[in-house]
């Protein structure tokens, strides 16, 4: 039975976001499990360590920071972004009324929602690890800062969003027109060549030295660019009506 009802893109996207956010929830559970694994693996060493020698006493510090959880989350976001564009996930689009563009937009919104959830999961994982360490190492347990600042949380959110956006863009590019595929392949090849030929020329220090909010804005700007390109490519690869 065919329907002649004209549904707006806005409504389709809203329905798809709701549908996909529930359907792809297993992606978040894989994040929780991997954070538990890495949290346990780094429970004795922390995210980083430093040492000072000299005299008749040497000091070792195991630092428990958000780093490891953020690294796990950004890689997770990239993989999830890629997976969202795979055939298995695209098959799910058939369950609801969709087009490639609406699906891409819905994926972007789901990615943003999941990035936000990922930040909450990072915070949970971190405090569970802190609790574990406080129970295990009571004598030499040092609290330098226990509360995560909002700016740090924003950096986490923007970084996860950025990597998710890159993953989505990559995945969509390989499903897009041939020109885009060739361009992406060329870009990757050149980027790899550049990295291996002159690794010293990649300097992230100016970016790292930026204040947290500035860094977040930059991350979100690049993420927006990736999201826009994703929509554009999805729109280009739409089955045209003749």
């Amino acid at each position: 039975m065919q329907s002649l009802t004209n549904i707006s893109l806005n409504t389709i996207v809203k329905k798809q976001v709701k549908w996909k956010a529930q359907l792809y929830i297993s992606a978040l559970s894989s994040l929780v499990i991997s954070q538990i694994i890495f949290g346990v693996l780094t429970s004795s060493t922390g995210s980083g360590s430093s040492g000072h020698g000299g005299g008749n006493i040497s000091v070792q510090f195991s630092d428990y920071s958000l780093d490891i959880f953020l690294i796990v989350s950004v890689i997770w976001a990239f993989i999830v972004g890629l997976l969202f564009t795979t055939k298995a996930y695209r098959m799910d689009d058939l369950s609801v009324i969709s087009s490639r563009t609406s699906s891409a937009i819905a994926n972007i919104f789901v990615m943003i929602i999941y990035s936000f959830m990922a930040v909450i999961i990072i915070v949970s994982s971190y405090y569970l690890q802190v609790l574990g360490v406080s129970f295990m190492e009571k004598k030499f347990f040092v609290i330098e800062s226990l509360f995560i600042s909002p700016s740090t949380l924003i950096v986490c959110f923007s970084s996860i969003c950025l990597f998710g956006a890159i993953g989505l863009l990559f995945g969509t590019s390989f499903k897009g027109p041939v020109v885009v595929k060739i361009f992406v392949l060329m870009f990757m090849l050149l980027a790899l060549l550049f990295i291996f030929m002159s690794p010293g020329s990649i300097n992230l220090m100016p970016f790292i030295m930026l204040p947290n909010l500035m860094m977040s804005v930059l991350n979100l700007l690049v993420a927006s660019l990736c999201f826009s390109l994703t929509i554009w490519i999805a729109n280009k690869s739409e089955v045209s009506r003749k």
């Binding site: 922390g46 995210s47 980083g48 020698g53 008749n56 006493i57 040497s58 000091v59 070792q60 510090f61 195991s62 630092d63 428990y64 920071s65 958000l66 780093d67 953020l70 971190y126 802190v130 360490v133 406080s134 190492e137 030499f140 347990f141 040092v142 609290i143 330098e144 800062s145 226990l146 509360f147 995560i148 600042s149 740090t152 950096v155 986490c156 790292i208």
Partner: peptide, 15 residues
Amino acid sequence: EQEVHYYRIKATLDI
């Protein structure tokens, strides 16, 4: 030489 090991909580991004 004595070694002391501290477990430090830093709720930030250390990198």
